[in-house]
């Protein structure tokens, strides 16, 4: 049973159709990499899956839960969106840490707010908050920022900020972790430390969708690679199939630019 099913997603911005009938599925514990040139629709696809954008048509299912179906208005209610998004963690290209909170504060904030909705929040407040803090510290240790917990984002390097953003997404224990070009805003040296964290997550069988331009990383870490071109899935398969034996002319063309460069 697939953890994620994306069926016939289309998305238009005005007259421009950015996604043209995209379908794929993802098994629990797998890593899928989405590659392709800029403007091919990779980021829009990711944003449609976690409902930051509303697909023009199509269906998204997590486990057996239909989180969006363009045919069924009951799945599109604004007030349910919030809870549905919690299936996904999302890591942005530009980090988007909250500047007024420390690294630890960034990791804790969402859980602290969600905790207020628990029925036993009033009676167990101290315990709950202590547990949230402990989890945040544990996550920051895990990503190698034990000594940076109380720093504000502007005091951290880009790579450190992105690692905090990953910890922040992990704190809510999402089913699927989405990365939108997580290293595109970083220089090569800092890229390595972020990729290392992501690699460790893959080894721990975290289900992930990674939009990336890091071809070597996609080849080494992903179980499945999707090559997108002009709003469609041009080719998909195992990394070996896509990188070493591409069938489509467009895929060969795209990859040759990377191997030459």
């Amino acid at each position: 049973m697939a953890i994620l099913n994306v069926e016939h997603i289309r998305k238009s911005f005005g007259p421009t159709e950015v996604l043209k009938d995209i379908s794929f599925s993802l098994e629990k514990g797998q890593v899928v990499s989405i590659i392709g040139s800029s403007g091919s629709g990779k980021t829009t696809l990711l944003r449609c899956i976690n409902l930051l954008e509303r697909p023009t048509s199509g269906k998204v299912m997590v486990n057996t839960d239909v989180i969006f179906d363009s045919e069924d208005p009951a799945t599109q209610r604004e007030q349910d969106l919030r809870k549905k998004r919690l299936h996904f963690g999302f890591v942005f290209q530009s980090f988007n840490l909250f500047p007024q909170y420390t690294a630890k504060g960034n990791v804790m904030l969402a859980r602290q707010l969600l905790a207020k909705e628990q029925p036993d929040y009033k009676t167990r407040k101290k315990e709950i908050l202590a547990e949230i803090e402990q989890q945040a510290e544990q996550l920051l240790v895990q990503i190698g920022l034990a000594d940076r917990m109380d720093n504000y984002p502007h005091q951290l390097s880009g790579g450190q900020q992105q690692r905090v953003a990953i910890a922040r997404a992990l704190a809510l224990q999402p089913d699927i972790l989405c990365f939108d070009e997580p290293t595109s805003a970083l220089d090569p040296e800092l890229t390595g430390e972020v990729l290392k964290v992501m690699k460790e997550l893959a080894e721990q069988k975290t289900t992930m969708i990674i939009v990336t331009h890091e071809m070597a990383f996609a080849r080494d870490v992903a179980n499945h690679v999707i090559f997108m071109d002009n709003g469609t899935i041009c080719e998909q398969g195992t990394p070996d199939q896509v990188f070493n034996h591409p069938q489509q002319e467009r895929t060969k063309q795209f990859l040759s630019r990377y191997t030459q460069g």
């Binding site: 976690n50 919030r82 809870k83 999302f90 988007n96 909250f98 904030l109 922040r168």
Partner: peptide, 11 residues
């Protein structure tokens, strides 16, 4: 991006 970061965190 600040608003979006909040949205994806279920706020």
């Amino acid at each position: 991006g600040q608003e979006e970061a909040g949205l994806v965190l279920g706020m």
